[in-house]
Amino acid sequence: MWERLPQLVAYGLVSGSVITLGAIGLSLTYSILRFANFAHGDLMTTGAYIACGFLFLFRSLGILGGRFGKLSFGPAMVPAFLLALVGTALLAILIDRIVYRKLRRARPVMRLMASVGVAFVLRNVILFSAGADPYYYSRKIQRAIYILGVRLKADQLFIIGLAALLVLFLHLFLTYTKVGKAMRAMADNPELAQVTGINTERIIAWTWGIGAALAAAGGILSGIENKLITPELGWQALLPLFAAVILGGIGSPYGAMAGGMLIGMAEEVSTAFVSTAYKPAIAFGILVLMLILRPQGLFGRR
């Protein structure tokens, strides 16, 4: 059992990367808009489906074919990925304009309830237009590469690398840009931020855009890892996302990264001990333990 541990930890890094991308966006919207967005998982699904749509489009046009080395995808993925990120971000901003903007003054829990409605609408619009059957990003079987005694596919290395890169970009953005600083100011104290002349509506739009783009990236990477996507993708990711956010402490993007990695590892390592059918329950178990022992999260302030 223990000799499998390094392998499971490596798998944990892969699924942790996907969870992290979702969790960071969820944590951002949580701290700046002050509600738990239950539609965040469905933004991941949206991103995954938009990318899939463009992949099919490029394939039918017969352009951007081929593959990158040992990866399961080729040049077509680059514009599909970017367009999906932009599309999901614009969609999130649009939903904010239509729904959440009207509820800015309402109690936060009203926005939470509205987000449950948005979640069902998004998922079922996807179900309506794409159907319940899975879509495949790739049907090729990949050969594994051996690194330090651990077996990983090229795709999985790519997922870890890209997630790390996006997290680094976000860190630089939050630390050095004006918008990033304004976002952190709003998370700390929205009234004070407004008094200092920060255009809060603009920052809210940025927050939705960045959160949704990261979610879309997470959704696409999950599609690359699992080879297929279904309309339930985001819903199934929701518990691990929330577990990661609460584990790391709500409102702390760095906490969400650590939380995402820990949840990913815990889920994979757990498969050595309990039936894989209960993988989703592991995240919930950790969440419950955390709520009992340290509800402010590992790195949270209170």
């Binding site: 409605g117 948005v118 069902f120 609408v121 079922n124």
Partner: peptide, 15 residues
């Protein structure tokens, strides 16, 4: 799916 979308839209509209 269409019916669920309708129910979701109704919820949001009421809120």
């Amino acid at each position: 799916a269409l019916r669920i979308v309708l129910v979701g839209v109704i919820l949001i509209a009421i809120l």
